[in-house]
């Protein structure tokens, strides 16, 4: 009799520890904030394509959030089969700690794993009432700037480096002066959202701030979604080539038995479909010849620095110098108070 109760008890506890079985194969793409709309379209396309070619019905699941936060989630056990994050350092973090990515993931896909790139721009309110044209305008007192938190968001780290490039040029390479300029900028930031999408909500929906510093792709999307509000896009004098990266998380894909899907998925990002969808959703395709010519006027030429320039010395160095505990960003925030 007692045994029966014990069995019930044990079964309940066990049941709680097991996930319900899912039908059919699926992959999980862990991505950053700005790609929601792109991957919604891309996944639908990919699922149909896979069904047509193999007759197998698969599902692509998505997780979105600030890129740094997503990288940590994967490292902490979020079992991504494909990772498409906002910057290389976040994939390096996964490759270093979790062993699910091979350390030379950059070599596994075309264009160094960069399916498309974007840049950092300002979005201002209708008619640009505060006449914000460049970074220096954002440091003026009385201007409110909305952006996301570089510790959790990838777009914000690109934005920070773009601002750094400007401030560095202005102060002739003097680090203290550069930090002083950035502090002036961040003093104008009332809120640091965890991801780029949160910053968009703050700016567009809650009507807070005079300028939003964000991805070009987000800026184009805002103009579309909030068309009635007349937002304008401002390209600063210097900005950065912001390169999101994709990689197959082999460790997980193998364990889940979906390596074939994951690899096809990642390569499809570089296919004609992937590239033309990218330009349609406001990203600059790595292979513009594959994308729709009509989309080209949306991407004006701008002066872009790169994280691989000597100023930053690649993501490894940039991450350590600027964003780790005690890095330049901590100093900027410390001065902010």
């Amino acid at each position: 009799m007692r045994i029966l109760l014990w069995v019930i008890a044990a079964a309940t506890s066990l049941a709680g520890a097991c996930s319900p079985p899912s039908s059919g194969r699926s992959i999980l793409n862990v991505s950053y904030d700005a790609t929601r709309e792109y991957f919604e379209a891309f996944n639908r396309d990919f699922e149909d394509e896979w069904l047509r070619e193999t007759g197998e019905r698969i599902v692509v699941n998505m997780s979105h959030g600030g890129s740094g936060k997503q990288a940590r989630a994967v490292r902490d056990g979020l079992e991504a089969d494909v990772t498409t994050l906002a910057l290389g350092a976040d994939l390096d973090l996964i490759a270093r700690d979790a062993g699910v990515l091979s350390p030379d993931w950059r070599a596994e896909l075309p264009a160094g794993g960069v399916p498309f790139f974007s840049t950092i721009v300002f979005v201002v309110r209708e008619g640009n009432p505060k006449a914000l044209r460049d970074w220096s305008d954002l440091t003026q007192p009385g201007v409110q700037v909305v952006t996301s938190n570089p510790k959790t968001s990838g777009g914000a780290r690109w934005a920070y480096l773009a601002a750094w490039a400007w401030a560095d040029a202005e102060s002739g390479g003097n680090v203290n002066e550069t930090i002083e300029r950035l502090s002036a900028l961040f003093r104008n930031v009332p809120v640091l959202d965890a991801g780029a999408r949160g910053a968009v909500t703050t700016f567009a929906q809650r009507a807070i701030g005079d300028a939003l510093v964000t991805w070009e792709s987000e800026a184009l999307l805002i103009r579309q979604e909030f068309g009635d509000q007349g937002f304008e896009i401002v390209y600063p004098s210097v900005t950065i080539r912001a390169e999101p990266v994709a990689a197959v998380a082999r460790g997980h894909a193998d364990r889940h038995g979906v390596r074939d899907i994951a690899e096809a998925y990642a390569s499809a990002l570089f296919s004609e479909t992937g590239q033309s969808l990218a330009s349609k959703f406001g990203f600059r395709p790595s292979f513009p010849d594959l994308a729709d010519v009509e989309d080209r006027p949306r991407f004006p030429p701008v002066k872009m620095v790169s994280v691989d320039d000597p100023l930053f010395g690649g993501w490894d160095e940039a991450q350590r110098r600027h964003f780790m505990e005690g890095g330049s960003f901590d100093r900027v925030l410390g001065d902010r108070r």
Partner: peptide, 9 residues
């Protein structure tokens, strides 16, 4: 803030 700190690792 607890969640933010957690997300910041």
């Amino acid at each position: 803030l607890i969640i933010i700190r957690l997300e910041e690792n």
